[in-house]
Amino acid sequence: MLGSEWMSRLASNDPKDEVMESMTGTVGLPESRPQEKARPDSAGGTEPLLKLRGVSKHFGAVQALYMVDLDLPAGQVTALCGDNGAGKSVLTKCIAGIHPPETGEMHWEGRLVHIRTPRDAAHLGIETVYQDLALADNLDIVQNMFLGRERLSGGVFLNEDDMERAAATTLASLKVTTVRSIRQPVATLSGGQRQAVAVAKAVMWNSKLVILDEPTAALGVAQTKMVQDLVRRLKDHGLAVMIISHNLNDVFAVADRIAVLYLGRMVAQDSISAFDRQNVVDYMTTGESSRSASGRRA
């Protein structure tokens, strides 16, 4: 965690003090922060694993995100919804360290962090499964799961036996049992199996937050079901999951909370019980909904 302390020392002097909340576990931070009374959040009063406050990002003249707040509690699935161009991908990339936000704060386990590179995100325990899955087709399942983090013996040689055992354990804990051999090339897997391998790869590293980008796009019914089960298992393991999806069937099947982006603003964020399909669509398409009084504006 040396990296993140170094980062917090460089913490920007953010003007948006009104969104700053009390931070627990900030011992050792060089700056003192104004302490405010913690705002009760939708995660049931406990500090969410990742908390975004006032995050903004623009590309040239395009304001991709404007003052976005987002809570991602542990052990829950948060669905991030929004129409095309609403800023879902940009927000994901802010969290994943690919496009660090210009303003705003991110709190990880109550501690102020700055995620500037994908490596920073990985150090914290944030793993992203992109829509294209980022698997090398010519490598087998074990090789893909350990790609870039191979276990070595003697500093140079691959420790295949160790990696194979660990990969088998992870796949078994996620109940991914349909693959015929853990040593088959990823090119020979079905779409759902590939998604499962990508998710297993993400959860292997003691990750605490897994972001899934359109995990069921282009999957058949049975495979969608398999991925939904997988997401539930991640949640049962105590991980925070953020799932980005166009598919409201998916969202209502697995999500505990819903956050809706509209033109770069977070227009609604609450537990799933506050939504139905119709008002989610309303929020996605118009940014507001007259149908629901319980959807908290953020």
Binding site: N138, L147, V156
Partner: peptide, 21 residues
């Protein structure tokens, strides 16, 4: 070796290799 594994990964999917660090 790790180097050989990375060669195959870059050859198979450079973007995946880059994202894997």
């Amino acid at each position: 070796t790790w180097y050989g594994r990375h060669v195959y990964a870059v050859g198979g999917n450079p973007e995946a290799a880059r994202r894997a660090g």
